[in-house]
Design a protein around this nucleic acid. Structure first.
Lengths: 336, 336
DNA sequence: TTGAAAGCGCTAACAA
DNA sequence: TTGTTAGCGCTTTCAA
């Protein structure tokens, strides 16, 4: 596999008998060359299959036409969907995306921020994850937009998120309206902004409907086992011991599904004895049996608004609004 | 948000009273500087929080420390899992990954190949997709490794794949051993190498067990509707008309699930009347009801072997083997 | 309309 | 052990 030596702009200049400056102008349609020159240069470019070397261009222009996307886990369906939409949008705008999977490790996230800075990406999108952004990155001047991640403090970083409070509220309300009186919230221990907002919605709904808030009904799963298995184990245990609840608001669909399986294993009928509402609108909620009632996030819009906000910042415009909140919707299915 | 001006290696040199060459040596641990100099330079670097600008370094070194990953659809669970493993591995080796979602559009794939070339990535991994690689890229000299995508022709591009033939064979065999005699293969029309290999396995299994091959049992779904919905519609139609089969080998789990739902809607008992085997080991096969028997691909190993092969090529070593085949395993569940 | 030349940040060959 | 310098591929200012 002998690599064909790459032709540079210099070669094209020599081959077409003009200066590199002129070739550059032709390539970038910057005017100031004759029609005749254009044709000649373009012919040579075609003939030698010249393509611009972005490393040189980037160095010179201080623009890499690359966006960094920081995401906890690309195999999470919600995140994958958002990344897909981001990629599509940015591709159309002429940007490529560097994927930074943090695995929810703060150290890895920090490392990626450094890498993105040193690779001089033109902008960064952070999906979910912890609340604070490394100082060096916010004052590096690289535009940043967060999705479902409220940046800590007084920083003026733009963020786009679903209305998690509303989601928590209508999820809980849906359970109440179906007759539940003892409603569990099954969430993640870690105090991410999305979790606390969903919790607030839950609490307010209970209060609005005159239901008591019981500490034992607020169950927080440990970070390293906070999805299907963790939820299943916990609900299995709680159901076995003493069925002190008749409704579960799980803050994502995998937790909801874990709860569902645990109840079924204990021969507790869903939705007859216990009703469940999940969150996100993942495919599991649609295809399991019974299908899980859930709160749908508008992934596409989330991605779109974030990408647009980022592009605006990159263009030097000041952000119009720092917080963009998107509505969520209740999708009623078999578990309620 | 006023961007702090970035300090360059020149600034560090000036600030610590040495030449840029020395700073470069210190940064890259290239020796040829005194302990004293090292300390001084490193102190200045820390103080000013200098980070290497990779655009300059890349231009000079002709290495970008970036890998391009071409993938049809990042929201496909199988691909997402592979991408995740690739990202992890490359991160540890000091490479970032540029994600190129082709949406299964040849035009977009071609565009991405051009971009990767012009961005001078150090290597490319192609997951699935069509059989031929653009000529310009294979002779550009950029190392390439394919996963589940057999490169066309006599090219010496390395590829790693699951044993799709074996998968097709054992899937069919499993159905036969459970008593099926009229087995459908539910696949995608498009002649990707993985599909044709699975089909060969299916055909050989039928022959080995003395079962006839019926053309009407080879059903190919159209490209743009070849998953859940397409499979469901097709099987629904076939089941309604005349139940001419008692087993289905679906070449992915979503197709298997579509078939399952279609049968259930026609009140055909699974696995009693018709048995189903899927492919991939996606989560849907696990959590639907009844859970689907499937052929599990070893995603992690697929990614690992591909990444290693790529790294070797990047290091200039000739590939030891051009085709790496990984075993698959039958996971028996409720549909057989 | 065109070209010469500087310079983006970095590394490495060569000289001292 | 250290510095000087050339140059990677490109754009852009300035001059012609």
């Amino acid at each position: 596999m002998r690599s064909k030596k790459k032709v540079s702009i210099k070669d094209i200049a020599r081959l077409s008998g003009v200066s590199v400056a002129t070739v550059s102008r032709v390539i970038n349609h910057n005017g100031r060359f004759s029609e005749e020159t254009r044709e000649r240069v373009e012919a040579v470019i075609r003939e030698y299959q010249y393509t611009t070397d972005m490393t040189g261009k980037s160095l010179r222009e201080k623009k890499t036409h690359t966006i960094g996307v920081i995401v906890p886990d690309i195999t999470n369906e919600l995140f994958a969907a958002i990344v897909l939409e981001l990629e599509k949008y940015f591709f159309d705008q002429g940007y490529s995306v560097l994927i930074c999977n943090t695995n929810e490790e703060d150290k890895k996230e920090a490392a990626y921020f450094k890498i993105l800075e040193s690779k001089a990406v033109d902008g960064i999108i952070c999906i979910s994850g912890s609340e604070d952004l490394p100082e060096h990155i916010v004052k590096s001047g690289i535009p940043i937009v967060c999705i479902d991640r409220k940046p800590k403090g007084k920083s003026d970083v733009v963020y786009v998120e679903s209305d998690h409070y509303l989601g928590g509220y209508i999820a809980t309300e849906a359970l109440i309206k179906k007759g539940c009186r003892k409603i569990l919230i099954l969430s993640k221990q870690k105090a991410l902004s999305v979790n606390t907002q969903r919790l607030s919605g839950y609490l307010d709904a209970l209060r609005d409907y005159g239901l008591p808030v019981l500490p034992e009904h607020i169950v927080g799963l440990l970070d390293d086992d906070s999805n299907f298995q963790g939820a299943k184990d916990r609900i299995f245990y709680m159901a076995k011991k003493n069925l002190s609840f008749d409704g579960i608001f799980a803050t994502n669909d995998w937790r909801a599904y874990g709860a569902l399986v645990a109840l079924q294993q204990n021969h507790i009928a869903v939705p007859e004895q216990v009703k469940i509402v999940g969150f996100d609108g993942s495919s599991v909620s649609e295809y399991c049996y019974p299908a899980i009632t859930t709160i749908q996030q508008n992934k596409k819009e989330l991605a779109l608004r974030a990408a647009q906000a980022l592009l605006e910042q990159m263009a030097g415009k000041a952000a119009e609004e720092h917080r963009i909140v998107l509505p969520v919707a209740l999708v009623e299915r078999g578990t309620t």
